[in-house]
Write a protein that binds this DNA or RNA. Structure first.
Lengths: 137, 137
DNA sequence: GCTTGACCTTCCACTTGCTGGAAGGTCCAC
DNA sequence: GTGGACCTTCCAGCAAGTGGAAGGTCAAGC
């Protein structure tokens, strides 16, 4: 199967699939004309990657998950641990975004938003969070 | 004032401050010895950048905000519009992360997590989201 | 047989927002 | 005058792809 069909089945752009081969996540065969030739197994790996990436796993985490996927003697506890760590990361990100949203909302509500130049949003930004006033890096 | 002191006041690494100069967000003076020399105004702009970045504005958005900050004839409505657009983006990101977290949580709960190799998490990933089954790009 | 267009190939550059490190200059205290 | 902390420039690299150029291949239509 050519890369276009594989792309449609895995819901990934052909460019991304070639990139995944570049970084050795998949190893498709080659047809006589030099075209990549994807097997059912390759498609499964691509779908695996698409789904894992969409769930927020990094490429390196996907590599680990794929090696567990390939390992018949894996412990499901190992997979579970990776997923739980990711839940924690996603949670931390949500908390951070909620804090950003709260601050932005407060700023927008404090701004009259008309044609005049005085703007509490810009004033707040220019004040900065200071060297030790809760700015988050 | 040298870059180290400016960095402490703005809560930014010196490297980042040089980078901001590289991309023309700030234009500090130079002392006789070639060292950058930051004024109070420069510090305010750096604090502005630090705060705006921490609130999720991209560098290009910061550039727009700084130009509004510099413009005595700005309309506060323009600033407000940028901030509201950012609130929308942050919200969309939160929704996406919540959906990721829900899926991950479901997967983790379905996995016994012991020494055996059978793992619903890997099975789900290998199934993929399919070409038209709600995978999000 | 020839053209057209869709597909495939490789390779290199670009993106965002920095960060790390090398090689060297400056400043100040001891 | 020496050590260490600071500063300078420049070059390389990170994640995770994306865009585009230059060219090869395949199948359909005339």
């Amino acid at each position: 199967m050519n890369i276009g069909e594989a792309a449609a089945l895995a819901n990934l752009p052909p460019k991304t699939i070639r990139y995944y081969e570049d970084i050795a996540l998949i190893h498709p065969a080659r047809a006589g004309n030099g075209y990549r030739d994807y097997s059912e197994t390759d498609i499964h790996r691509l779908q695996f990657l698409q789904r894992a990436r969409s769930l927020g796993f990094t490429i390196e985490e996907c590599r680990v998950l794929l090696s567990l996927y390939d390992d018949d003697h894996r412990a499901s506890a190992d997979v579970r641990a990776v997923a739980m760590e990711k839940i924690g990361e996603v949670e931390r990100k949500i908390v951070e975004l909620r804090s950003m949203k709260a601050t932005l909302t407060r700023l927008v509500e404090s701004c009259h938003g008309d044609a005049r130049p005085d703007c509490p949003i810009l004033e707040d930004l220019a004040r900065g969070s200071g060297p030790s006033c809760g700015g988050h890096q």
